[in-house]
Amino acid sequence: MSVIVKTEKLRVEFTSREFHQATKVAVQGLDLEVQAGEVFGFLGPNGAGKTTTMNVLLGFVPPTSGAAYLFGIDVRQPIARQRIGYLPELTYYYKFLTAEELLRFYAKIFGLSRAETDRRVDNLLKLVELEQASKRPIKSYSKGMQQRVGLAQALINNPDLLILDEPTSGLDPLGRMKVREIIERLKSEGKTVFFSSHELGEVETVCDRVAIIHQGELKVVGRVGDITRQHHGNLEKAFLEIIGYQPQPAT
C-alpha cells in the first residue's frame, strides 16, 4: 500500500502580535501516515490542532519545522494539490457565480478539456442534486445547498484524496446521509478520504482508522475497532478517556 498523506515531526508555532509576542504551539512533533484507499478520521477537541494540520497539508500554513507530503510531494509545491479535493467546514465560494460557473471555473484550473468539463459538471450537479438550481447565483442558496456545491467542487478533478473539514457540520440528517453516501462511494472506488469531525458516531461508521490529537500532540492512532475494544466502549468513550476528560459528579 502506498502512503498518500505523510507528516514527519510536524511542528507549527504561531507568534501572537498581542500578548508580548507570545508563541503558541499549535502542533508538535506530529508523525502521521495515511495509506491509499483508507477512510481516515482526524479527531480532537476544539483547538487541538486539527485545522492547523489540515492547513499545513493544503499549503495554507508553512510548518515551523518538520515536513508534510501528499503523494510523496512536499505540500509547499502547488502540484501536490493536483490530485486532491478539499471541502472546507464553511462555504467559502464566489457567491456571485452560479453553481455551474463555479464548477467550470475550478475545472479550468485543473486544465480539463471542454468535453470533460461538460461531462463532470453535469454528473456532479446530478450527484449533489443541484441540477434545477445550477443557473442561480450561489448567494441565493440555502446553507445545505451551498455545502453541496462545496462537495461538488471538491470532486471536480476526480481526486484520489479527499480532505474534508467537518463535512457534516450544520447539515440536516438528509445532508449528512448524502455526505456519508459519497464518502462510502469514494471508498468503494479506492479513493482516500481524510476528514475531521466531531460526529464520533459517524466516524465510527465510516472510518477505517482514526487519529486523536489533543493540545497539538498525537495521542493515539489506530483502527477504530482496536481503539474501542481497548477502551471497552464506543468511540466517544474512548475519545473522552484519551483526552483525559474527567466527568464532574452530579451535585
Binding site: 493544503l58 501536490a80 493536483q82 472546507p88 467559502y92 478533478n157
Partner: peptide, 17 residues
C-alpha cells in the same frame, strides 16, 4: 475576508498565479 482564497489555494494554484 470572504475566505474564498482557501478553496482556491487548495487547488494546484500558486499565490503568484
Amino acid at each position: 475576508e470572504n475566505r474564498t482564497i482557501f478553496p482556491l489555494l487548495a487547488k494546484p494554484v500558486s499565490r503568484a498565479q
